[in-house]
Design a protein around this nucleic acid. Structure first.
Lengths: 238, 238
DNA sequence: AGGTCTGTTGCGGGTTCCCGCAACAACTCT
DNA sequence: AGAGTTGTTGCGGGAACCCGCAACAGACCT
């Protein structure tokens, strides 16, 4: 069994390599890449179907690389291994994981045996495994029932790009007023409160983006890839 | 000489400890903290004046902790050691570094001898030292002469919090129109372009925040601490 | 002193945004 | 079937925003 390890931090990389050889005797070869582009090349050339993937990397981040890997080979098993419990990452991953594949999401702070367990569960057994820490974080925030549904999230991303209501409506195929309704519920769920009392009045749009970032509903990587998606969408209609 | 090492990643911490004992024989004791709060306590109790500080940590980030340390003891020497070449961090640091102190900013990707050099220069010799990588990144962006001056940056931060023009004007002691002029030049320098041709119209305010984040002029930590500063400012005037 | 440059401020108007109100469709429950 | 719930859409108005125009002050140069 060949494993591709995608990780730009040398300490984490050598630790992971260590754990890999210790816990998975099935592994015969370990390849190495330090960013998404290298990962895609390596996986293609070496016909890899088991990957341990860091998320935040220069050049091309883990989610984008994973998307390519899965396009070329839908049964690739990928364990994402990240420093951050951002809801944005998990959302990005579940949006692209193919039907018949396996993945896992583990925090780098996870203890060694949990890491071993996850490696076996995902890479060998082909299970889905998500660090409990992330689900926990996903639920806890201020206002009640604050989980965004997919269409709300889509509008949030477009808002974050700086698009105007009309353009969002066009892109997502809703009416202008519907977009604004989505924004309303976004403001609600993200805790964007207008100062009804003597408090500070705010710019809701910017505030929504601020809140989304601070609560880790959105992160900068997500914005960057969303930008590319948008440009692509825009190019494909002239 | 006592050194306080503030770092939440165990691998990086043990690596740094290693380099410390190898390169600085004057070091007699190394204390350890995993977040800003612990760092403040430890520094106070142990009377520390030399610190190696990670930036991104839970609880309380490195810049906030440094501010406290410098308030209590203005000659503390701090080497910031970070994964990120964000202009935002450097700006946050230079805003709080006292007259008669020394600091350094080094990336974690720096090779071992540069690290040794920085440790000696900052902690022992009391020099200022900034990784060249960061200055380089600071200059390269799209539009010409795009370095923000302090007042532009202040407005940018307030914008990022979601404040309205009127409130920014009040807080920064400018007229409303002046704030808007600052915004104008911000839009220019950040490359926020309205679609004069048949292109996509945008919401400039949100777009400005987006650009600032993507170019690493601003980061989420900055927004979080700015939020606290703002609340404090607001509380101090009833 | 005269001239230019840069930064601040007021005014006014066009645009976008926020959102209450109301009509309507689809779906659920009794 | 009737009543209530939820999501979509149009209309309209008040607030905030973007910004051109112009007046003015201070700094610097000749």
């Amino acid at each position: 069994m060949k494993v591709l390890l995608v990780e730009d931090d040398q300490f984490h990389a050598s630790y992971m390599e260590d754990v890999l050889v210790e816990s998975l005797p099935e592994v015969t070869q370990i390849f190495h890449a330090v960013n998404g582009l290298e990962a895609e090349r390596e996986a293609r050339v070496m016909a890899i179907d088991a990957v341990v993937m860091d998320l935040r990397m220069s050049q091309r981040n883990g989610i984008e690389a994973a998307q390519t890997l899965w396009q070329e080979r839908a049964d690739t098993r990928i364990l994402f291994w990240s420093n951050y419990a951002d809801e944005a990452y998990l959302r990005g991953i579940s949006a692209i994981v193919p039907e018949d594949s396996a993945y896992g999401y583990l925090l780098k702070t996870a203890p060694r045996d949990r890491l071993k367990l996850a490696l076996r569960a995902v890479l060998v057994e082909g299970q889905i495994m998500v660090d409990r820490e992330i689900h926990r974080l996903q639920r806890r925030t201020a206002s009640p029932r604050n989980t965004l549904d997919d269409s709300e999230f889509a509008v949030l991303v477009d808002l974050g790009l700086g698009l105007q209501d009309r353009m969002i409506a066009e892109r997502r195929g809703m009416s202008l007023r519907t977009v604004q309704n989505r924004l309303l519920s976004l403001y609600d769920k993200l805790g964007v409160e207008d100062a009804t009392d003597g408090d500070t009045p705010i710019n809701k749009r910017v505030r929504a983006l601020n809140r989304a970032l601070v609560t880790r509903t959105l992160n900068v990587e997500t914005l960057e890839t969303a930008e590319r998606d948008f440009e692509q969408w825009q190019a494909g209609r002239a």
